[in-house]
Computed example of a mutant assay.
Amino acid sequence: MRPVLDAARGRRSVSRVTDAAPDDAELVELLGAAGRVADHAALRPWRVIALRGTARERLGAALAEASGLEASDPRGAAKLAAKPLRAPLLLAVVAVRTPDHPKVPEWEQDAAAAGVAHLLSLLLDEAGWGVMWRTGPHTRHSAVASAHELGEHEAMLGWLYVGGRPTGWRAERRTPSDASTRLTTLPSRA
């Protein structure tokens, strides 16, 4: 039995979720496990911000502002502002960078934060929650950073939209990718 392999193979994004969501105690437990990703120098270069209720509306307003559509296309701006309301819980994944670290460049710190996001999405899926990682063209806009109260050395990586799986939800069957086309071996040299 290979439970981690089975969990990874079974994971599917869930774009439509119900209003149920994990509580903070469950999130802390899952985040504690997700935080075990490879992390050079143990910097823990990440944090997660939970957005529930009206906090999602603040994000929507920031996305609309970032788009610049408020004056030219108010309907488009309103549609964009409603996107964070698609799930009862959004988990903003933030890279917390230590600039000019002597051993760990910023790209590696971002990679560790992205690893936490991916592992957290897998753990949430395995716990029975519907999850979808979303980004977009405004992810790193200053209005979005301000809405999340990000610090000077922090950068948004995206949001995990989390909620209950709808009744009758079934994971779609996907044709497995041929991983052999993605693996190469560097030949040894004498």
Rank of each mutant, 00 (worst) to 15 (best):
S72F: 00
D73G: 08
D73K: 02
D73W: 01
D73M: 04
D73E: 12
P74F: 11
P74Q: 08
R75K: 14
R75H: 13
G76C: 08
A77D: 10
A78M: 03
L80A: 06
L80S: 05
A81I: 10
K83D: 07
P84D: 03
P84V: 05
L85G: 15
L85D: 12
L85P: 11
R86I: 03
R86P: 07
A87H: 02
A87D: 08
P88R: 09
P88H: 11
L90F: 07
L91K: 09
L91N: 07
L91I: 02
A92H: 11
A92C: 06
V94K: 02
V94C: 06
A95Q: 10
V96R: 15
P99N: 07
H101V: 00
K103G: 01
K103V: 12
V104P: 11
V104M: 04
E106Q: 12
E106C: 01
E106A: 15
Q109E: 06
Q109V: 10
D110N: 08
D110F: 10
A111K: 01
A111Q: 11
A111V: 13
A112M: 08
A112Q: 06
A112F: 10
A113K: 03
G115W: 06
V116P: 02
A117C: 11
A117H: 05
A117Q: 12
H118L: 14
L119V: 15
L119E: 14
L119A: 15
L119S: 13
L120R: 08
L120A: 08
S121N: 12
S121Q: 14
S121G: 15
L122W: 10
L124W: 04
D125H: 15
A127L: 03
W129R: 09
G130H: 11
G130A: 10
V131L: 03
V131C: 08
M132Q: 15
W133S: 05
R134G: 01
R134W: 07
T135V: 02
T135K: 01
T135S: 15
G136H: 04
P137R: 15
T139I: 12
T139W: 11
R140P: 02
H141T: 03
S142T: 14
